[in-house]
Design a binder for these strands. Structure first.
Lengths: 340, 340
DNA sequence: TTGAAAGCGCTAACAC
DNA sequence: GTGTTAGCGCTTTCAA
């Protein structure tokens, strides 16, 4: 069996309290410090987390509920988040709910029963009902990427300025003389979809015009979806002169569709994509992209949760943090001369 | 505060033992069963996992250490694995070590300290040294996708028949009359890379010939890597007439390189890729692919670990399970007529 | 079948 | 600064 604090006490001749205090960063006499350190090493003592948890009611574990693990935006956020959290000695339990509200609710319940100290959710259920068990249990929650208005004040959130992101991209195209701008969005009803659509419409409004309805395609944030949506856009009698695609996977799919259709970018069609510039670096050297600060999002979420976990005090300490995006100009768009 | 078993005891007038027994599936008098059930519901009782863990020394948690979360093969395995494990009430702690041996070792140590009941590793460190702490602690281990000979008999493993997979693909091309077959592999030194290379060479040997060294490109299992490797193959004075790419990301990158080079598949170059047919379905309708049973791998790993977790008894219960792959014939290869 | 009681290994008063 | 002690909430003998 593994050594316990009792063993340390026996070997060093000290009391349990002294040892416990030392292990938790308290001050003890230098001589005793040495004593304990030696015993810990010799006995290969490792604190029993179960006992500690039972006593402190903390698991030093956080739960993450996401809609889909096979999505680079999500995985990159998880990676940077996990990095920070683990440095602070928190384990991360990941639950993939496959964009299914039932599964999502189950996952939250499961995590609450596992007594996670905090919860990170990229919600599928737009009502936020799935989070009720965590709310009831008083578990701090941080929403990622998608805010739920019904949970305002009850949770923290880290999102990007989606409206601004879409505005910038669309405005850029409008300013370049395009007025038939295809828009490929994610699932209708999802927060980011709505916001990005809003930004697109805002930009059009600035230019005192309205896009044709058929230019706006709802898809599903997958590569297949992006491919299909682009195909659909190209199949219209009036083809768009530019397209704005609103996530990484769909950007990839859309580019493949363009490739297949032998449409030269930007000569025959202008293109603005989303995310993960570096991966595209080699492949489509000069794509103009809206870039989300993926690492910053992950870090921000982790720090936000750590703050909630630490400041057990105070009152309404929930924050909504909005990070800005960048429009990374490549050469995948061209300027259209308007007829005078 | 949450209700405890004591509360149930108080409300029902029963003893703790009876309640505990009932909660753990034991038999109690029907009348008492009712009593307990009602109390549990009314008090919203949920067993405290900490206390249970302290008593049983089980965390009902398993750790997963992987090289990279942003890889579809890995995430799809995790997803199907997590599904099964969670159904059995095990939480999954995921640690991404970014293909870094130091990080990998730290992750294992972290998980051992967290007292996971089992460990799943897709190893980066080819010596297997990182798993020593888990081995010492007697934590059952299942290796995924990559076997480590040094750990033979000490761990279970689930792999695919990589040699056979590469043989099939290469043989198929050789039989079609190709003899200049480019091969794009992952990182040199990695298990799957070696096995797939072996299969490729085996097939050539069957045909009593040897491939030119320059046809074999080691890359890194990323899209960028696949793109670059394909470019390099195409840049040679003698271009291959066929190419076999050995994972999903590189297949994507390689196809993009072909697209860019305006090379028609299969007219100008034959192509066999890897994995995830369904995603490609829409995009490259007729790609010939080696398909790994990703879901089966995840399931197999989960079941294997559950077995080890349950059969706490017996002796050498470790198994190495090899799953077979399929060569899914599309129309991305053509037959070359050999000069008579 | 049921209940009393003894811990699992740790933390945190509290008294010294 | 240190030691004693009383639990945290559960499981599990053991006796009834």
């Amino acid at each position: 069996m593994a050594a316990t604090m009792k063993d340390i006490a026996r070997v060093t001749g000290l009391g349990l309290a002294t040892i416990s205090k030392y292990l938790n960063g308290g001050t003890v006499r230098p001589k005793n410090k040495k004593l304990i350190e030696n015993a810990v090493r010799d006995l290969r003592f490792v604190p029993n987390e179960f006992a500690r948890s039972l006593k402190t009611s903390q698991s030093r574990t956080v739960g993450v509920v996401i809609p889909e693990l096979g999505n680079q935006f999500i995985t990159s956020i998880i990676t940077s988040m996990e990095d920070i959290l683990r440095k602070h000695d928190y384990a991360v339990i990941v639950c993939d709910c496959r964009t299914d509200a039932k599964r999502e609710k189950d996952a939250v319940t499961f995590l609450v029963h596992k007594r996670v100290d905090g919860l990170i959710s990229m919600p599928t259920d737009t009502t936020g009902a799935h989070l009720q068990p965590a709310l009831d249990a008083g578990i701090p929650i941080v929403l990622v990427d998608r805010m739920l208005k019904s949970l305002n004040g009850l949770v923290s959130a880290v999102v990007v300025d989606n409206v601004d992101a879409a505005e910038k991209a669309t405005r850029f195209l409008l300013q370049s003389g395009h007025d038939e701008i295809g828009l490929i969005l994610g699932n209708e009803g999802i927060y980011t979809t709505q916001k990005r659509r809003e930004g697109y419409l805002n930009a059009y409004a600035e230019f005192h015009c309205k896009p044709r309805e058929e230019l706006i395609r709802f898809s599903d944030y997958t590569m297949d979806g992006g491919y299909a949506a682009m195909k659909a856009l190209l199949a219209q009698k009036t083809q768009p002169t530019a397209v704005f695609v609103t996530n990484f996977e769909m950007t990839l799919g859309a580019m493949l569709a363009l490739n297949e259709a032998q449409l030269k970018v930007p000569d025959q069609i202008s293109f603005i994509g989303f995310d993960k510039l570096d991966l595209f670096g080699a492949v489509f050297p000069n794509l103009t992209l809206v870039k989300q600060p993926q690492n910053a999002i992950g870090e921000c979420v982790a720090k936000q949760l750590l703050r909630l976990l630490t400041d057990a005090s105070s009152g309404p300490l929930h924050q909504i943090i909005t990070l800005s995006t960048q429009l990374n100009e490549g050469s995948s768009t061209r300027i259209i001369q308007k007829p005078q």
